[in-house]
């Protein structure tokens, strides 16, 4: 145990660890405040789908030697609109729409990577995340945008709650439910595009789903669920970063592992309470 604490002391002296902790925590917070709305709306998989889209956009960005974040965010937002439109218009279930967009994006990413040759290693770091690749520019953008996401959810909390609880009722009392659905899509897109840097394309949706489902095991109220999810998520990210540093393990995978342990604990608590 002593060695773990020592390595934490050692870790916090590295710049990149501090950046990873900052960006990771902010993304964890934005992902978990959005998570409850998405999970309850049965849109858990949208995180996965959009992560695949951001993977493709990263491939495009690397190909054009542009900043991945600048390219990713607008395209991912468009893709999320496209998913909503598909499920609205094309008589298609939401999960099917996500799955279409998702596999198409992966195909594009693979094609671009094979045509452009030479950045496969770089692209890999986006597949499973790497805390080593975070530039100062990324930190600034990530921090700013996560704050935007968090503040927006706070401002629209009551509306999002009503739309999630019963969309028809919300519409009946005059709320613009479509606007809130698109708002959620935008916020999710931003969070995903930021998050694949830390935990990677394959694992980012766990940041959205895991803490929320864990919190749902133990909570009663809506606000409380979001709060618990946020705390769990931040703790998991911080622990994950330190453990991955101390034992030289991939960060994203360790964060997901922490989340799985947290879920198991919450499930146990729920079972014991009965």
């Amino acid at each position: 145990m002593m060695t773990f604490i020592e390595s934490i002391q050692q870790a916090v002296q590295y710049d990149f660890i501090l950046k990873a902790l900052l960006v990771g925590s902010l993304i964890a917070i934005s992902a978990s405040v959005l998570g409850l709305f998405l999970v309850l709306k049965k849109y858990s998989m949208i995180g996965d789908g959009l992560a695949h889209v951001s993977f493709a956009t990263v491939a495009i960005a690397l190909w054009l030697s542009a900043s991945p974040l600048v390219v990713s965010i607008p395209i991912v937002i468009l893709a999320s609109f496209f998913i909503l439109k598909l499920s609205e218009k094309a008589s298609m279930h939401g999960d099917a729409a996500i799955s279409l967009v998702s596999s198409f994006s992966i195909a594009m990413a693979v094609l671009i990577a094979s045509v452009a040759k030479g950045f496969n290693v770089d692209l890999m770091s986006y597949l499973f995340g790497s805390i080593l690749v975070i530039s100062n520019f990324d930190v600034a953008i990530s921090a700013a945008l996560s704050l935007v996401v968090i503040v927006t959810v706070m401002f629209f909390y009551h509306d999002l709650f009503a739309v999630t609880f019963d969309e028809e009722y919300a519409q009946a009392v005059g709320m613009n439910t479509k606007f809130y659905n698109y708002l959620l899509a935008v916020l999710t897109s931003i969070t995903i595009a930021l998050g694949i840097r830390i935990v990677g394309t394959m694992l980012i949706s766990s940041l959205i789903v895991f803490p929320t489902v864990t919190a749902l095991q133990v909570s009663k109220g809506f606000r409380m669920t979001i709060l618990i999810a946020t705390v769990i998520s931040v703790v998991c990210v911080v622990l994950g970063v330190f453990i991955s540093f101390a034992y030289n393990l991939p960060t994203g995978a360790v964060i997901v592992l922490m989340n799985a342990i947290a879920f198991a604990l919450a499930f146990l608590i729920k079972a014991l309470r009965r």
């Binding site: 629209f156 009551h158 509306d159 709650f161 009503a162 009392v173 005059g174 909570s219 009663k220 606000r223």
Partner: peptide
């Protein structure tokens, strides 16, 4: 599973008369 307390659900009925940013 929906995590909403009765109070939270009823308070929803007050939202339509509020303006942004809605605050209870």
């Amino acid at each position: 599973l929906f995590p909403a307390k009765v109070r939270e659900v009823i308070a929803m009925g007050l939202l339509s008369s509020k303006r942004f940013p809605k605050h209870l």
